[in-house]
Design a protein around this nucleic acid. Structure first.
Lengths: 112, 112
DNA sequence: TTTCGTTATATTTGTAAAAACATAACGACA
DNA sequence: TGTCGTTATGTTTTTACAAATATAACGAAA
């Protein structure tokens, strides 16, 4: 009989999803690996799915989150922009605080 | 370029979902109509789907949320228990405050 | 004992999302 | 010019979930 309050948050712009937990997870893997294909592999995700996700991010963002290069040394790659990094940090900070808030609310449920 | 932070919260007990926005919506319709079938109709939901939802609530809750009767006057009906009502109130209160918190955080995103 | 309005449940069908598969294009380098 | 590792897309197949359909059972009341 132990309750948990769970949550998911996401950022929308003009009714399009810009950033959620899944996309943040992928973007951080791109930052770490420097490559979309390596990031996908590290998350056991298909390249196509990863590409579709970051394509959606790029399409709803007004400033670019990631910059991809093709053909260049080692075939190409992808890296986060400063804007992308700060947006991710803000998302994660807000998300953490949301979880904290909800954890603090659990007593209102347990008391019933 | 106007950002929104959206969220969904739900209550779990032993890794089973107990209560989320959809279930709360249905439970309130049951409270209003006194009947599962009428509540489903009022939400343009199939009876089967509504029944499955409240069955899931009943299975994960330790104290009953709704009491159904069958065969009795007018065919039967369903009504919320006091426990169910207070749980719904608590859920909605926490959810509202969560939204408020997130609305207050939006400036952190807009500033970037 | 038939009809009514309900709860309760199984079975089938349809649909949308995910996964899998396939291929093209790019530029570097040997 | 052929190969490599990558980004970039289209197409097909599979799967999971939702919707639709069907039926049983209950107790009251006529």
């Amino acid at each position: 009989m132990t309750y948990k309050i769970k949550s998911r948050i996401w950022i929308e712009v003009d009714d399009n999803v810009l950033l959620g937990e899944g996309r943040v997870h992928l973007l951080k893997a791109i930052e770490k690996t420097g490559s979309l294909s390596k990031a996908a592999k590290s998350l056991q995700m298909s390249y196509k799915k990863a590409w579709t996700l970051i394509d959606a991010v790029n399409k709803s963002a007004d400033k670019p989150f990631i910059i991809t290069t093709i053909g260049v040394k080692n075939g190409g790659g992808a890296q986060l922009t400063e804007y992308g990094k700060t947006m991710i940090d803000a998302f994660e900070s807000i998300n953490r605080d949301c979880w904290k808030y909800l954890d603090n609310q659990i007593h209102k449920i347990d008391a019933l």
